[in-house]
Design a protein around this nucleic acid. Structure first.
Lengths: 223, 223
DNA sequence: TCTGGCAATTGTGTATACATCGAGTTCCCA
DNA sequence: TGGGAACTCGATGTATACACAATTGCCAGA
């Protein structure tokens, strides 16, 4: 694999996992040394991260890992509502019912996966990701697909920050099931509205979850 | 200004203007020679263009100017409908009425600009751009703003491809006026729906316009 | 004449050297 | 002692050399 690709994936993974905390400076030489490649591929990786919105230019010459606070999570969900609402609507219009029927079966079994520990959790997320993939394919719109991919990237970051409770994931699975049913039925409005509902509840949970976490970190609530 | 920035803007301008036609190969050495800089800044410029969606990797080693056919225009408008609908909705909720009142005045005078030749046309587009800026500011969502900027880039390309008739622009101005009125009134649904209407009519015109143009190019309709 | 393989050319991927700009610090002068 | 200016240090911006891979064209053999 190309060095620039490895550098990009390594840095992206570290940002998503929080190993590189928000605000961390991303200097070319430092990262080049750390990753064992020259500045050239690191440069390209950093440019991609900035395009992704995972890194932000703090000043003309310093690049930082993007912030991930409540405000940016709300911003993300406002974008997701727009993009995923549209995607669900278009998928309901253009879908091949057979492909979603298979997915529906897997999704119906998802709640049980959550009793099976970490492997089950991974399998659960695989199903959810497969749903996103299927919707993206059904929409058949490369530009919308690119925008959705970007949103998925940021969603993954939020997901890892706000570790989900099993009961929330079980609820999310049933929300997803409703979206799939609406898509299979070709009910565009229901697909869009069910997506809206899912995102609303998901955001509420995410905000509560990080609130709770920051309360643990600073019981006085000053930071 | 940095060489990479100059290279990026030069290439972007040429793509938007159609000087570099869709499908044109963008080779590093060739562009570096042509633009009078080394491969390094050209490389960065090409990466940005690809991230923008103005260039597409045709294979592992060849980058091309992105296609701009009816299908991709429809795709663009599906994304715009999602993003701009959400933006109008949020702007109607968060706007400062005073700032949009000023804009409303300018927009009301826009139709007369269209009788004043090319300068008037430029002034007209300045007003429309100012509206986009104002909405973006009112929304106060950096992630949505970035997505909107990307859409505006592609919209500019379509705009230059499908030269607008004055009567269409006059109609568009009144559609914009309705959007502004809805935003000032804080009517979120009307703002979103008026945006939908505007985009629908705009797309219909754009498709008819390029249809007409391609009919001129190939009267048999085979290409 | 056609096909398959080899070689040459061309373009990208990476490393590195050099140029340039900015920031921070220190020293000098008021 | 405080403020300003210059210098130094370090980081990014750019150019270029080299390595490598792919594609294309040519030649030989069937």
């Amino acid at each position: 694999m190309r060095a620039s690709e490895r550098a990009y994936r390594a840095l992206r993974e570290e940002i998503l996992d929080g190993v590189l905390a928000p605000g961390t400076a991303l200097a070319e030489v430092e990262q080049a040394n750390r990753l064992g490649v020259s500045r050239t591929p690191v440069r390209e990786a950093l440019a991609r991260l900035e395009a992704d919105g995972l890194a932000t230019a703090a000043s003309a010459r310093v690049l930082q890992v993007s912030a991930l606070d409540a405000a940016s999570i709300v911003s993300l969900y406002e974008v997701r509502e727009a993009l995923e609402g549209q995607a669900s609507r278009l998928a309901a219009r253009r879908r091949d019912p057979a492909r979603f029927a298979e997915l529906r079966r897997r999704l119906a079994e998802a709640p049980e996966l959550l009793d099976e520990g970490d492997d089950g959790l991974r399998a659960y997320y695989d199903v959810v990701d497969a749903l996103d993939d299927e919707i993206e394919a059904a929409v058949a719109n490369p530009m919308l697909a690119a925008a959705l991919q970007s949103a998925r990237l940021h969603s993954a970051r939020v997901r890892r920050l706000a570790r989900q409770h099993p009961e929330r994931l079980r609820a999310a699975a049933s929300e997803h099931l409703l979206i799939v049913d609406a898509i299979i039925a070709g009910d565009t409005d229901l697909a869009a509205h069910a997506t809206h509902v899912h995102l609303h509840l998901s955001l509420r949970h995410a905000l509560a979850s990080i609130e709770e976490r920051s309360a643990l970190v600073s019981p006085t609530g000053t930071a």
